[in-house]
């Protein structure tokens, strides 16, 4: 009888825990998985420049970006609100990593085309990698001034500029993501007395989420090889991202009116700390052209 009680004591807890045992058994049969941290930022733009984000397979993102004039223009310019600089652009996700896009910026009537490729994804599990790395390249053509208005016989080659960037980001937690952007901008034709053909710059930026749909962002581009006569400033921008369904609204304050890398990184005209601040916004809308399934 004693033996029976002992046996029952052994058997009964195993019956009570049977479902947990079954769960443990199920977990044993599961292949190890990799968790990816793909949502470091809400938009493909951090403030003025690019983020590591891609638009996703089959999605077409329309972006309308707008910068007012500088606030230190005073009451005469209604603190910048009289002026407007616009970039309208499209980006299509060929797959979850590769995006291709075009845009038109009213600053110097610039057309740009670009490619974006997510090379590495931040992950945990069977593969561990601490960073997301996206390569970005663009080519841009200034269509202003007109040929007959130019001060020298300007050719299409003179009008071109190119950008190469590595966007390196880490999502530290649900709230905080930081990004570094080593950048090269090459301009085919410049006035060498004030600037260089090649500009080497390092951007740094990040976001802090304050709620599920709202985040604060900041971005700064530092140029390493500035010509002493160069009148331009390093680009600074801060913003608020608000996400609503298919839209992302980014409201920004920045010292640049440009929206292509050439204009942002190398030709920022205003001093942020002297009131040369432009209010602006980026609005994106995503359209799914091709269904994922």
């Amino acid at each position: 009888m004693n033996k029976l009680i002992t046996l029952l004591l052994f058997v009964s807890p195993s019956l009570a825990l049977a479902q947990d045992d079954l769960m443990a058994e199920l977990e044993k049969t599961q292949k190890p998985r990799t968790q990816y941290f793909d949502q470091a930022f809400k938009g493909t733009r951090l403030v003025n420049g690019q983020s590591v984000q891609t638009v996703g397979k089959g999605a077409l993102e329309f972006i309308f970006a707008h910068r007012f004039g500088a606030m230190n223009g005073g009451a005469y310019e209604l603190f910048g609100l009289d002026q407007a600089y616009v970039r309208i652009g499209l980006e299509y996700g060929i797959n979850d990593r590769l995006g291709v896009g075009i845009g038109r910026n009213s600053v110097d009537k610039t057309m740009d085309g670009f490619l974006r490729y997510k090379v590495l994804r931040q992950s945990k599990g069977t593969t561990n990698f601490p960073l997301t790395v996206t390569a970005f390249a663009n080519a841009a053509i200034r269509t202003s001034p007109k040929k007959e208005d130019a001060t020298y016989p300007i050719t299409t080659v003179d009008r071109m500029s190119y950008t190469g960037q590595l966007l390196i980001a880490r999502k530290f937690n649900a709230q905080l993501s930081l990004q570094l952007m080593p950048t090269i901008v090459h301009k085919n034709t410049v006035d060498r007395s004030i600037t260089n053909n090649d500009t080497y710059a390092l951007g740094a930026g990040g976001r802090v989420k304050v709620s599920k749909s709202v985040a604060l962002t900041a971005e700064y581009y530092y140029r390493f090889n500035t010509n002493p006569n160069d009148p331009h400033y390093n680009a600074i921008g801060v913003g608020v991202d608000i996400e609503t369904g298919g839209h992302v609204f980014q409201i920004v304050l920045t010292n640049t009116r440009g929206l292509t890398e050439r204009a942002v990184v190398t030709e920022t005209e205003d001093n942020f700390f002297d009131g040369g601040i432009h209010l602006g916004f980026n609005v994106t809308r995503s359209f799914q052209l091709k269904k994922r399934k």
Binding site: Y36, A59, S286, K291, K293
Partner: peptide, 16 residues
């Protein structure tokens, strides 16, 4: 019965 769903593996029509 037990089951385990990897929630990240839900596939939607729209990326966003």
């Amino acid at each position: 019965i037990v089951f385990s769903i990897p929630v990240t593996d839900f596939v939607f029509e729209k990326s966003l």
